[in-house]
Design a protein around this nucleic acid. Structure first.
Lengths: 189, 189
DNA sequence: TACTACATGTAATGAGTTACATGATTAG
DNA sequence: CTAATCATGTAACTCATTACATGTAGTA
């Protein structure tokens, strides 16, 4: 029951349509949660029925009409209540780690391929997040922005996303190097 | 459909009961996947029906009897097939990040409390993982173990878990420091 | 002309969580 | 005597993913 809170948090600083939300929750920018469009449309409908968000129709002639959503008082109250609860630990669930766990019984070349694929993906995200951070803090430096800027929430979560992807990239390279090294030194299997 | 592969990977290096598996997949040691006991018992039953794992009854008189599982040839083949598929990107889903995303609209003290709780949890895991790594590599140093040891798969995934928790801890402290700093310098909200 | 972006959903299936159930042994 | 550990599940429910569905406008 936390997708609802993720949606509320995402709508706090900007009014968004379901479509825009979906993009924010997609692969690219999901620094704090991930969800598919279908889930988001469904969740928005539910949140609106419960009065936690309010939607307003925006008529467009060149594009299909859309509905923009904002968080209501009740929605903010719900988020506040949520913030006071202890959060359940978050878990890793990653195909790639499963494969590396089985490394001793699998083809190293195959694994190295996967690891480099993932490292490339991480690099792309690192660049993306770097750009987002720069845009958010404008011409200030980070220290100054975090002390005196507003909307630091998204900035802070993006910092976590950045560090996470850097961790991914480093680990992928290190692991690939280890597997390649063993391949050439002819280790018994 | 990846829990099955996680179970197979976990059973590769040691014969385990459902109960032992459940402990490995629990909060403490889940460096590459997480699942609850119920899921694991169900998955083991399914894997056995499909011939991917084989269970053998172990009679105990002081404890309830248990069934120990090993991966079959077919199971290893299934893992190999899995390793060749491209893996879907893994996503973050974390209550705490949702709360920080909404930081600009929530009570900073509350958030700092959550962040320090999480940092403490991360510290505990860091110690735990550190110990596991030491046990796995024995008296060798890491470089040597990774070059010539066997069962490096679990070691490598544990390294990722360790780095992840260190990232968590650092980010929690940094974020808490930022929020405390702003509280004292009286930023407009 | 084909593809991508905009914009919003429904339906079916699969995966994960919560609650419940049982029963013995050992450590505090 | 109470709690934790060992050991294994079932049932109900919620959440997430996959597949499908529709239609317009701008870009290559």
């Amino acid at each position: 029951m936390a997708l609802r809170h993720a949606v509320l948090a995402a709508l706090l600083n900007e009014e968004l349509s379901g479509y825009q939300l979906a993009k924010a929750f997609d692969v690219g920018v999901a620094n704090f949660w991930h969800a598919l469009p279908q889930q988001l449309y469904a969740e928005l409908a539910k949140l609106e029925r419960e009065g936690l968000v309010a939607g307003r129709e925006v008529v467009q002639d060149t594009r299909p009409n859309k509905r923009l959503f904002t968080v209501t008082e009740a929605g903010l109250a719900e988020l506040t209540r949520f913030a006071a609860t202890a959060d359940k630990p978050s878990f890793i669930r990653d195909d790639l780690l499963v494969k590396v766990q089985a490394a001793d019984h699998l083809d190293p070349d195959e694994l190295v391929t996967r690891l480099l694929e993932r490292a490339a993906l991480a690099d792309a995200k690192i660049e993306l997040f770097g750009g987002l951070l720069r845009r958010m803090r404008g011409d200030r430096d980070e220290e100054d922005f975090l002390r005196h800027g507003d909307h630091i929430g998204p900035y802070l979560t993006c910092l976590r996303g950045l560090a996470f992807e850097q961790g991914n990239r480093d680990w992928c390279h290190r692991t690939a190097a280890v597997l390649r090294e063993r391949r050439t030194t002819d280790v018994p299997r």
